[in-house]
Amino acid sequence: MKYLCLGYYTVDGRDRLTRDEYAAIVARCGPLDAELRGCGKAGVVASLVEHEVVTLRTRAGELSATDGPYVESKEQVGSFLIVEASDLNDAVRIASRHPAARLGEELGWALEVRPIGHLEEYRRDGGIR
C-alpha cells in the first residue's frame, strides 16, 4: 500500500530562525534524507517552495487561477514523500526517518502519514464506526 506523508512547519517558527540556525538544521536534514532515499521504500521525497503557488478552481463555470495557496494558514506543508509500505505501522516506521518527524521540535515541525486511495477498503463493511 502507498502512503502520502506531508511535512509541516509553522511560519512563526521559521521566522524566528537566524540564518546560522537555519543552516545548522538543514545540515542535519541531509543524512536523514539520504537514509530515506536509500531504504528503497520511499518513491518520492521532495521539498516544496513556499511562494509562487497558484490555485486552480472553477468559478462560474470557468477555470480560474488565483495567486496563493488554497489554505491560508500559519501551518504550511513544506515537504512530502510517498512510501510503499506493508501497512500503516510500516509506513510510520519508514517515515520516522524524515526530518519533519525527527527535527524541528521547537519550530513546530510535524509529519502526517496518510493512506493513499484505499480508504474505501476499510470504510466498507462498517470498518469505521
Binding site: D87, L88, N89, H118, E121, Y122, G127
Partner: peptide, 28 residues
C-alpha cells in the same frame, strides 16, 4: 496480531471496528 500473526494494521483495525490510525498509535 501484527508481530506474531503478521496481520496488517489495517486488518486489525477492520477486525476490531476501530480506525487504522488508532491501532497504529497503540502499536507505536
Amino acid at each position: 496480531l501484527r508481530e506474531v500473526c503478521d496481520l496488517t494494521t489495517e486488518e486489525i483495525a477492520h477486525a476490531f471496528l476501530v480506525r487504522a490510525s488508532t491501532v497504529a498509535q497503540r502499536i507505536v
